[in-house]
Simulated assay, not measured.
Amino acid sequence: MTLTPEVTAALDTAALILILIGALLCLTAAIGLVRFRDVTARLHAATKPQVLGLLLICVAIALSLRSWPVVAFLLPVVLMQLATAPLSAHMIGRQAYRNGTIDDSSLIVDDLAASKRTPPAAGG
Rank of each mutant, 00 (worst) to 15 (best):
M1G: 13
M1F: 08
T4Y: 07
T4N: 12
V7D: 10
V7H: 10
T8N: 06
T8Y: 02
L11D: 04
L11H: 11
D12T: 09
D12E: 14
L18V: 07
L18N: 00
L18F: 14
I19W: 13
I19R: 09
L20A: 15
L20C: 11
A23W: 01
A23E: 01
A23N: 03
A23L: 13
L25Q: 04
L25Y: 00
L27T: 13
T28P: 01
L33R: 01
F36L: 14
R37P: 00
D38I: 01
D38T: 03
T40P: 00
A41D: 15
L43N: 01
L43S: 03
A45Q: 11
T47N: 06
K48M: 10
P49S: 10
P49A: 10
P49E: 10
Q50I: 06
L54D: 02
L55M: 05
L56G: 03
L56M: 15
L56W: 06
C58Q: 02
I61V: 15
L63G: 07
L63I: 10
L65E: 13
S67R: 13
P69A: 08
P69F: 04
P69N: 08
V70H: 10
V70R: 08
V71M: 14
V71T: 15
F73D: 09
F73K: 14
F73T: 06
L75G: 00
P76I: 09
P76D: 10
V77F: 05
V78N: 01
L79G: 01
Q81H: 12
Q81R: 07
Q81F: 12
A83K: 04
P86S: 10
H90C: 07
M91L: 15
G93R: 09
G93N: 05
R94E: 01
A96F: 05
A96D: 03
A96Q: 04
G100I: 05
G100Q: 04
T101V: 12
D104M: 09
I108K: 14
V109G: 03
D110H: 11
A114L: 13
S115M: 11
R117C: 03
T118C: 05
T118P: 02
P119L: 12
P119D: 12
P119R: 13
P120Y: 09
P120L: 11
G124W: 11
